[in-house]
Each structure stands twice: as structure tokens, then as C-alpha cells.
Amino acid sequence: MAEVSVRAPGRRWSKPPFIKSPGLRWGLYIGATIYFVLASYSILVDVDWQRVYEGLPRGAKFLGGFFPPFPFANIIETGGFEELAAQRLIDIGDGLIESLTMTVTSTAIGILISVPIGLGAARNIAPAPVYLFCRGIIAVSRSFQEVIIAIFCVAMFGFGPFAGMVTLSFATIGFLSKLLAEDIESMDPGQAEAIRATGSRWPQWINYGVQPQVMPRLIGLSLYRLDINFRESSVVGIVGAGGIGSTLLTAFDRYEYSTAATILLIIIGIVFFAEYSAGKIRARLQ
């Protein structure tokens, strides 16, 4: 180390901290740690470990339900196609069709309504009162989870897919209008201005100056929402709004894990397929 000591002592360097003020930094560290300890404690203190332990075999049974999924397992076990298996398959089919129809109708209705609301919620093209009204609708729709809205729809329209459809349409409006409005707000004003300078009317201006800029993204978002609506259609059934969720809930209530596993596999398969084709469509649009 003699070599080093000959030179002037080196200038130290250490990585500058992300948060400059030391008080704030340590405050955040300590606060986060305290919160973490308290929160973990309040979650873990209530856990009934005995119950968790007893549940493990059930978990294994559920996982076993995937290999192979229900109808095949039944065929292998009994060597024939039992009435029960047939009945479950019909249940699953009905639930699935209901889910898919809900998905299609709610997405279509949702898009139709969210386009005008999205236009109204864009600060750069809508007058203030319209803007506030549309933003209000979006805020309400986005704040509540679909299931809460579904509860009210079921209370109003009765059990069945109609309530589910209304729920999903409402949720679609919140999602699509907000993103459409943000897209319009961040568009290139130069293009829109050029169209306005031609003396176009308002709808012409929207059609020529705004629509071409936001259309590809709107189509992409609609496809994405179709996907989300299918996934959500599997939960609104839990509160009675129709779809495959009701079938799933029944399966869990009866501890029929293999039926549940089949339904989950079908959902995964459909979502995967939808995502894959949406990717293809989006690639073609660009």
C-alpha cells in the first residue's frame, strides 16, 4: 500500500442518493419499514395456520384436477360417459356461451357510447361544461370494481346476463373514453389546425383532423377491451349476473375441483387465443 500513500489521498466517490434531502430520505425509509412491519403483522396475526395446513391436500386435489381435466378424467375412471359428466359439460357450455355473448354485446355497446364521451372528455376539443360532465361519468365508472356495479345491476334488472351486459358496457365506457380522451389530448395540433384552416365544419374537422390520428389506437384498445370484458364476464356471475362465473361458483361450492379446473383451462385458452389474434390484427393495422 506504500504506492498509494505516496499520492495525494484520492477523492472519494459514492453513488449520489436518489432522494437528495437526507431528512426526507430517512423519513421515507423508516416510514416504509414501520408500515411494512405493521401491515405484515396485521395480516399474519389472523391467519389460522391449522386451517392452512389442512387446506394443502385440497390444493393438491385442485391441482390434480388439471391432469387430466374433468370430462376426460371421468371417462378414464368409469370407462364410459356418465350422466353427471354430460350434465357438467352442458353446464360449462351454457355458461361459456352466455359469457361470450355478454362480451360481444357489451363491447359493441360500450364502444358506441364511449366515442362521444371520449370526444367530450378531451380538454382540447370540448367546452368546459361538457368536459366536466364526461369526466364525471368516467370517474364514477372507473372507481368502482365491476362486481360492485354488477350487484346494483342485478338488483335493478334481476338475475341473468342482461345485468352482466349492462355492467360490462358501463365499465367499458370508463376505460375506453378515458384512454380515447387522453389520446386526443396528446394528438398533433398542427394536423388538426390545418384541417380547421380549410374552413371545415366541426364534424368534418373531427373526421379529417382527429379521427385519422386516433383510429389505430382506438381499434387496438377496443380489441384489448374485448379481451378484458371476457375475463370480467367470468366474475360478474359470482353475484348473479350470468356467464361462466355462476358455473364456476357452483363448482367451488360443491368442491368439484376438476370441473373448476376445466373451466379455468378454457378461460386461459380463450384469453390466450384472443390475445394472439389481437396481436396479429394490430400488427396488420400498423
Binding site: S42, I43, L44, D46, V47, D48, R51, V52, G55, L56, R58, G59, F62, V147, R231, E232, S234, V235, I238, G245, L248, L249, F252, Y255, A260, L264, I267, I268, V271, F272, E275
Partner: peptide, 27 residues
């Protein structure tokens, strides 16, 4: 894909049925 396809409410349904109701299952 599996994690994304299955809604958290369904995960909860599953976990409640396996390890019992409570905040832990929700987390």
C-alpha cells in the same frame, strides 16, 4: 397468461376454498 386470465376474485374464491377465509387468502 394463466395469471392474467384469471380474475383476482376467482383466485380469491379458489384460495378461500383451499386455505380458508381471511385477509391472507386475499393477499
Amino acid at each position: 397468461v394463466s395469471s392474467r386470465s384469471i380474475n383476482s376474485l376467482i383466485w380469491a374464491l379458489l384460495l378461500v376454498s383451499i386455505i380458508g377465509p381471511g385477509v391472507f387468502a386475499g393477499t
